[in-house]
């Protein structure tokens, strides 16, 4: 019914459109993530160190507004490869971060699917979660330790 060149051209066109269309990221995508370990407490004098100034607005919203004094316990930057868990050495405990995939969407920010784990100082798993966040958005994962807070502020960009 159709000649071979016609079929070939149509196939190439369809393939080109399919490749050009936004969609799931390829497996070799990478992301750069900053991880800040934050200790939160209530003190007589509220304080937010300069390193946390970019997060100041977030720290003043619930549930983080339960504390008024924050400090940076550790800070690191990770380069994540897809589906490879990266360990995060913390001042207290440890964590891991894994980039599951990056979804590139037309007219929207790329969306990163992450897997996060967090263990306490004794090595007990505290959190194991899978989340999806837009590039540049902040994910804060933490727990109560006595009345203080122990959090990780994670922000990733492809």
């Amino acid at each position: 019914m159709f000649s071979k060149p016609t079929i070939l051209c149509v196939a190439l066109a369809v393939a080109g459109v399919a490749l050009a269309a936004p969609g799931r990221a390829l497996a070799d995508d990478t992301a750069s993530c900053s991880v800040i370990e934050i200790g939160a407490t209530n003190a007589k004098d509220p304080s937010i160190p300069p390193g946390l100034k970019p997060l100041e607005k977030k720290l003043k919203k619930p549930p983080l507004s339960s504390w008024n004094s924050f400090k940076v316990m550790s800070s690191t930057t990770l380069n994540l490869s897809a589906m490879r868990a990266a360990p995060v050495k913390l001042a207290t405990g440890q964590a891991s971060l894994m980039l599951r995939e990056i979804e590139k969407r037309e007219g929207k920010r790329p969306r990163l699917a992450l897997a996060v784990t967090m263990d306490d100082a004794s090595g007990k798993r505290v959190v194991d979660s899978k989340v999806s966040v837009d590039a540049g958005d902040t994910l804060m994962v933490g727990s109560l330790v006595n009345d203080d807070g122990h959090f990780l502020a994670i922000s990733c960009k492809p």
């Binding site: 970019p54 607005k57 977030k58 919203k61 549930p63 983080l64 505290v126 959190v127 979660s129 989340v131 966040v133 837009d134 540049g136 958005d137 902040t138 994910l139 804060m140 994962v141 933490g142 727990s143 109560l144 807070g149 959090f151």
Partner: peptide, 11 residues
């Protein structure tokens, strides 16, 4: 907020 979205997981 004006800096983007934030998710807080508190255990």
């Amino acid at each position: 907020d004006d800096e983007g979205g934030t998710a807080v997981i508190l255990v």
